[in-house]
Amino acid sequence: MQNNRQINKSGELQHLLTIEGLPVSMLHHILDTAESFVGVTEREVKKVPLLRGKAIFNLFFEPSTRTRTTFEIAAKRLSADVINLNISASSQSKGETLLDTVNNLSAMHADMFIVRHAQSGAAHLIARHVAPEIHVINAGDGRHAHPTQALLDMYTIRHFKRDFHELRVAIIGDVMHSRVARSQIHALTTLGVPEVRVIAPKTLLPKGVEHLGVHAYHDMSKGLKDVDVLLMLRLQNERMQGALLPSAQEYFKYYGLTPEKLALARPDAIVMHPGPMNRGIEIDSSVADGPQSVILPQVTFGIAVRMAVMSILAGS
């Protein structure tokens, strides 16, 4: 997939499709800009006039409540007009193609598309197709990428741990099917995290994952030792139906994050989760609601990070 399409000739961000290939300076620019937006969302008037008059379309071909809502709030706090389209329920069932949908919305003078699709590469396809003044943000495509989720995770890590250069970070769970994990790995290695680990049963780790610059573990007791940041992944229920996992109970026994397993990490380690959580499958409630959990700050920061991405794109 062409990743250089997201940077234009002047070196500005034209689309945000994937973290892979973005320079470290761009990641810091996004995180720094987000920091200014955190202050805006704490004010009496939680809006700035930056994107006044812009039309932003949330194109969700796959159901998602949280991501769509945070993009919607972010767009509204930038004073943009935001239009939500749940396409699975409308045009596609009538047979309209992806690009026909995009053409129609472009004719309505869209300025930005936020795209969630079950097919890897859907946002890239749209980015290749639209006029140069239209910007595209990938809000999750198949197993490929979910760049704004990774960016808000990086923001949260930077907020609580300050420096990326001395951290051990573990990504735990269904790495195989996770676009979040892929984007996190690219972001963490680009930002200079010296040790990124993935912990999962063999059936949920892609072959050759080490080539992404991570260390693979199959055993939580080894993988969690001395870790500063735990990035939990959502275990999708449909994985139980194939031969990948014996049962939810079995998974929780070996890979569910309990207080006992968390105690193996550093005492000041933070626990993150992209949501929605499966309590009692990948994470125990006492950890999810415990003092080391920063899952709710992640949600708050997610709005500021998405405001930053949208305003950087709209200004390029």
């Binding site: 800009t33 805006v40 709209a314």
Partner: peptide, 16 residues
């Protein structure tokens, strides 16, 4: 930076 009237022309200031 978030209130400038030249955002359309020059985009977001690089160091907000």
């Amino acid at each position: 930076s978030f209130y400038r009237d030249d955002f359309e022309r020059i985009g977001l200031h690089p160091e907000v």
